[in-house]
C-alpha cells in the first residue's frame, strides 16, 4: 500500500521551485482531523464496518434470512477455488469490462476532445449527458424494447439496412454480453466524456495555439498535447468506470430476467460475478459464500486499480 502513495498524491508534495517555506501551510493531524471527521464517520459506518463484517461473514455459513451462522474457517474459500461457476462468471465479467470500458473510453475521449475543439455549446453537452440521467432499470427496459427481436425499432432498422434476420440480441448466448456492454456504453459515454472534458479545461489554449502555429494537425495535437495532459482525469475516469463496470448488475438482471427469461441467461451466458454474488445471497440465502465471492472481487478490483494508478501515474499531469 505504501508503494502506491507516491503515485496517488505526488504532485503537491514536490518541492516548489520558489523554495518557499510551507511548514504551516500543510497543517498536520490536528487540522486534518476536523476536515476529515464527517467523511471518516461516514466511511467507518457505511463502508468500513460493513466490509469488515463482510470479511468476517466470509468465514461463516451465514444464513441471510435466519440471520445466523457459525464459523467454518476457510470452507467457503475452498469451495470457491473449485467452483466452475465462479470462474465462468468472472470470465464473462472480464469480457464485459473489456468491451464496455474499451468502447466507452474511446468514444468518450473522442467526444470530449470534439467538445473541446469544435464547440462550447451547452446544449450539445447536455444532450450527450441525457442518457446518464435515466435509472439503470429503465435503460435496460428501454433497450430491451428497442432491440426486441421481432418488433424493436433498432432491429427493424438493422434489417432495413441489410443485416440478416438473426438479430436476437438478448437471447443469443454469443450476443448478450456485447449487447449489454454496448447499452452501458450508450448510457455512460456522455458522462465519461463530461468528466474528461472537465479535465481538458485545465489545458491552456495557448498550448494549442503554439502547436497550430508550428503547423501541427488536429490529430497530432490530440496525441501529443491532449492525451498526455489529460492523464490525472483519465486516471480518475478509468478507475471509476472500470470499478463500476466490474460491478455490472441491474442492467443484466432486468435485460435478461425481464419477461420470459432467466436472470443471467440465456444458458447462463450473462451470469456475471455480481449477479452470482446476488444469487448466492438473495436466492440461496448463503451470505457466507456471497461474502467470500465479494472479498475476492474486492481484491481483484484493488489490484486492478493499483496497476491503473501506477500505469497512469495518476497524480501527475505533464503540465504541473
Amino acid at each position: 500500500m505504501t508503494a502506491v502513495s507516491p503515485d496517488v498524491g505526488a504532485s503537491e508534495t514536490r518541492p516548489k521551485p520558489s523554495g518557499k517555506k510551507v511548514q504551516n501551510l500543510t497543517g498536520g493531524w490536528p487540522v486534518a482531523f476536523w476536515f476529515l471527521l464527517p467523511s471518516m464517520v461516514g466511511f467507518l459506518v457505511f463502508f468500513l464496518l460493513p466490509t469488515i463484517r463482510g470479511f468476517y461473514l466470509s468465514f461463516t455459513d451465514w444464513n441471510l434470512i435466519g440471520n445466523n451462522g457459525k464459523f467454518i474457517g476457510l470452507e467457503n474459500y475452498e469451495k470457491l477455488a473449485g467452483d466452475d461457476q465462479f470462474y465462468a462468471s468472472m470470465w464473462r465479467t472480464l469480457k464485459y469490462v473489456v468491451i464496455n470500458i474499451g468502447s466507452q473510453t474511446v468514444i468518450a475521449v473522442l467526444i470530449a476532445s470534439m467538445m473541446d475543439r469544435l464547440t462550447r455549446s451547452s446544449v450539445i453537452r447536455g444532450a450527450l449527458l441525457l442518457p446518464w440521467l435515466m435509472p439503470n432499470v429503465v435503460v435496460a427496459l428501454l433497450w430491451l424494447w428497442m432491440l426486441d427481436g421481432s418488433i424493436g425499432v433498432v432491429t427493424e432498422f438493422l434489417k432495413f439496412i441489410g443485416f440478416s434476420d438473426d438479430l436476437a440480441f438478448f437471447t443469443d448466448t454469443g450476443k448478450v454480453i456485447p449487447t449489454i456492454a454496448a447499452i452501458n456504453t450508450w448510457k455512460y459515454m456522455g458522462y465519461t466524456a463530461l468528466l474528461m472534458f472537465a479535465g481538458l479545461q485545465t489545458i491552456p489554449g495557448t498550448v494549442y495555439e503554439a502547436a497550430a502555429m508550428d503547423g501541427a494537425t488536429e490529430f497530432q495535437m490530440f496525441r501529443k498535447i491532449t492525451l498526455p495532459l489529460m492523464r490525472p482525469v483519465l486516471a480518475l475516469v478509468l478507475v471509476i468506470t472500470m470499478i463500476g463496470s466490474f460491478q455490472v448488475f441491474d442492467t443484466v438482471l432486468v435485460a435478461t430476467g425481464g419477461f420470459g427469461g432467466q436472470p443471467g441467461g440465456p444458458v447462463n451466458a450473462s451470469k456475471v460475478i455480481y449477479l452470482y454474488i446476488y444469487q448466492n445471497a438473495f436466492n440461496f440465502n448463503d451470505l457466507g459464500y456471497a461474502a467470500a465471492l465479494s472479498v475476492i472481487l474486492v481484491l481483484i478490483l484493488i489490484i486492478v486499480t493499483f496497476f491503473q494508478l501506477k500505469l497512469l501515474r495518476a497524480g501527475e499531469s505533464d503540465l504541473a
Binding site: L49, P50, A281, S294
Partner: peptide, 17 residues
C-alpha cells in the same frame, strides 16, 4: 487509498449491515 477501496466494496455487501 483506504477511502478508495470503499469504491470497490460491492454495494450489495453493505446493504444488509
Amino acid at each position: 487509498f483506504l477511502y478508495l477501496t470503499g469504491l470497490m466494496v460491492p454495494p450489495i455487501f453493505a446493504l444488509i449491515p
